[in-house]
């Protein structure tokens, strides 16, 4: 491999995954619609009162984001595993962590970033104060990549199993809890006019930690799943 091999491989996998996502638009849009619909359910189920919704808003938006990420996770490796291209990718001389990182980035661009864009609208739905909007976006920007990264481990572990869906949520959701706790807490604190830098630093730390360790674990898990 030449010196440019690794960045080129990264970009090749990234563009390939983005192109695939573009060709299968409904798979991309459905988790996003799910996100919107789940959030809409809460005012109907709990109460349309502004005061109640305002206190629930950070939690509702974040739980919905978690579930919608879970819904789109399988796409990361499943179809590549089924048509055998995942095996070919792993056989290439490029380190598998780089490939995993590229696939995670593609997944985040397709499923995490749209959440970020649509979240302010849902914040308005749930009467979230305008002052908390920026924090909501910050937590989503720092938190959703962690969800994609950690989720990649879960998908890599279950991709070889025939019915991985329910198992995937059992494996991944407990690992998501720190992100959920700190993000929802930060948004709620911002709504009350409290400082949130501590929570944001913590989320940033989680992002760095998962960015450096999750690809290693996911790559090892993929090798086991394919064996």
């Amino acid at each position: 491999m030449r010196t440019f091999g690794i960045p080129r491989a990264f970009i090749a996998v990234l563009t390939r995954d983005l192109l695939l996502a573009l060709r299968r638009r409904s798979e991309v849009v459905n988790p996003l619609l799910f996100f919107v619909i789940v959030v809409t359910l809460f005012p109907l189920a709990v109460s349309p009162s502004q005061a109640i919704l305002q206190t629930l808003a950070p939690g509702i938006i974040w739980v919905a984001a978690l579930l919608s990420t879970l819904l789109s996770l399988e796409r990361m490796f499943r179809s590549d595993f089924e048509d055998g291209s995942l095996e070919q990718l792993l056989l290439s001389p490029c380190p598998p962590t780089v490939l995993v990182l590229a696939k995670v980035l593609a997944h985040w661009l397709v499923s995490g970033l749209p959440l970020l864009l649509i979240a302010p609208l849902l914040g308005v739905f749930l009467a979230l104060p305008v002052t908390a909007m920026a924090t909501l976006l910050f937590t989503l920007a720092l938190g959703t990549p962690v969800l994609s990264l950690v989720g990649a481990i879960g998908v890599a572990l279950t991709v070889g199993l025939r019915r991985g869906g329910a198992l995937l949520s059992l494996l991944v959701l407990p690992l998501y809890l720190p992100v959920l706790i700190f993000s929802a807490n930060a948004v709620a604190a911002a709504a009350d006019g409290l400082p949130v830098t501590g929570q944001l630093y913590f989320l940033g730390g989680l992002l760095l930690l998962s960015c450096s360790l999750a690809p290693l674990a996911a790559a090892a898990a993929l090798k086991i799943s394919i064996h």
Partner: peptide, 25 residues
């Protein structure tokens, strides 16, 4: 999660290795 992953695979050794990664995470 570890127990579920262990019992999910058909091959016991593969399942063990997968759940070991999960435990380490």
């Amino acid at each position: 999660g570890v127990i579920a992953l262990q019992s999910a695979g058909e091959d016991k050794r593969t399942a063990s290795r997968a759940s070991a990664i999960l435990a380490l995470v």
